[in-house]
């Protein structure tokens, strides 16, 4: 075995142990030079390759990985917004806390006006003089007399 071939073999074993059996994961400078050696009938290479494949298969099973919770995403984006988000919006960002309250009040006002317009029967009719007379008369009898009843 020449010195170069032996060096390459030692490097291949190290690469298999560190990066696994898939040449796509190897450092680019090793990929082309060492890939052909995988096919060589060398028992040491075969043993390292088999072991590397076993460990690689464990990582493949791990594909369903944890994701960051959505509230963390919200907090992270909030931080960015707090630092820079308001900068482009000029003085309008000062009004931001009042937007919710203001729109609520405006909505309530519109509802009030609408109810007032659409519900005329809710207002007290002014053609009820008798009720006022009853309220202001000194007694029921006086009221009855005033109304001409006996």
């Amino acid at each position: 075995m020449s010195h170069d071939t032996d060096t390459d073999k030692q490097r291949l074993l190290r690469v298999l142990d560190a990066y696994g059996a898939d040449p796509a994961r190897w450092p680019p400078q090793d990929r082309q030079r060492l890939s052909p050696l995988l096919a060589a009938p060398d028992p040491e290479v075969t043993a390292h390759l088999a072991e590397a494949r076993t460990v690689d298969s464990l990582f493949k099973e791990q594909e369903q990985q944890a994701h960051a919770p959505s509230h963390l995403m919200g907090a992270v984006l909030n931080d960015a917004d707090r630092l820079y988000g308001a900068r482009d919006k000029g003085f309008l960002f000062l009004l931001r806390p009042f937007v919710g309250v203001g729109s609520g009040l405006a909505f309530a006002l519109m509802i009030g006006i609408l109810v007032g317009i659409l519900s005329p029967n809710l207002t007290v009719p002014d053609d009820e003089p008798l009720l006022n007379d009853l309220a202001w008369s000194d007694s029921l009898q006086e009221w009855e007399l005033g109304n001409g009843s006996s």
């Binding site: 995403m73 992270v76 984006l77 960015a80 917004d81 820079y84 988000g85 308001a86 900068r87 482009d88 919006k89």
Partner: peptide, 11 residues
């Protein structure tokens, strides 16, 4: 510059 789409993309 306060570009929210860039921070969203990075996150």
């Amino acid at each position: 510059r306060g570009d929210g789409s860039a921070s969203r993309l990075l996150a």
